[in-house]
Amino acid sequence: MLSTQLLVVSLGSLALVAAQGAVNCPELPDTGVTMGEPVPMHPEHIPTGCSDFEILVARGTSEPNYETGGGKFGIVVGDPVVSNTTLKLPGARGYPVQYPASSDIVSGTIRGSLDVVRRLRSQAVACPNQTFALVGYSQGAGVMHAAAKDIPVHLYSRIKSLVMFGDGYRRLGDVLSRFPVGLNSKVMQVCAEGDPVCDTSGECVYYHLTYIRPDYINPVVNFIVRGFTG
Rank of each mutant, 00 (worst) to 15 (best):
V106A: 15
S107P: 00
S103K: 15
I110Q: 03
P96S: 12
I110P: 01
G94A: 09
N129K: 11
Q130A: 06
V116R: 03
T109I: 11
T86G: 08
L114S: 13
L87V: 06
S107D: 07
L89D: 00
S122Y: 11
I110N: 04
Q130G: 05
P100E: 10
A92C: 00
Q130K: 01
A92I: 02
L120I: 08
V125D: 13
R121T: 14
D104T: 07
A92H: 04
K88L: 10
P100T: 05
S113I: 03
L89Q: 06
A126E: 15
R118W: 08
I110M: 02
C127E: 06
N129I: 10
P100K: 06
G112F: 01
C127N: 02
D104R: 09
P100G: 07
P100Y: 03
V97N: 03
L87K: 15
P90Y: 07
L87T: 13
S102M: 09
A124Y: 11
S122E: 15
Q98K: 13
G94N: 04
K88N: 12
D115G: 05
T86F: 01
A124L: 07
R119P: 04
I110W: 01
T86S: 14
T131D: 05
Y95W: 11
S102G: 11
D104K: 14
S113Y: 03
D104Q: 11
R118L: 09
P128K: 04
L114F: 10
T86P: 06
D115M: 04
A124E: 11
A92R: 04
T131C: 02
A101S: 14
V117Y: 00
P96G: 13
V116N: 02
R111P: 00
Q98S: 11
Q98N: 14
L120G: 00
G94E: 06
S122R: 15
P128V: 04
Y99F: 12
Y99P: 04
A126R: 12
A101K: 05
Q98A: 12
Q130H: 08
A124K: 07
V125I: 14
S107H: 08
L87R: 15
P96F: 12
P90L: 06
V116D: 01
V125W: 10
T109P: 01
V117N: 03
N129P: 08
R119D: 08
L114D: 09
A92F: 02
V116C: 03
P90I: 02
G91M: 01
S103F: 13
R111Q: 14
G94Y: 00
I105M: 13
P100M: 05
T109F: 00
G108H: 05
R111E: 11
V117P: 01
G94M: 04
S107Y: 09
R118E: 09
V106C: 06
V117T: 00
R119H: 10
R118F: 05
Q130F: 04
A126N: 14
G108V: 03
T86Y: 07
L89S: 02
Q123K: 15
P90Q: 09
R121L: 12
P96N: 12
G91E: 01
V125L: 15
G112T: 05
Q130T: 03
L114H: 12
Q98P: 00
G91C: 01
Q130E: 15
V97W: 03
I105H: 10
Q98C: 09
R118M: 10
Y99G: 06
P128S: 08
D115Q: 07
R121G: 09
V106D: 13
V125C: 09
V116L: 01
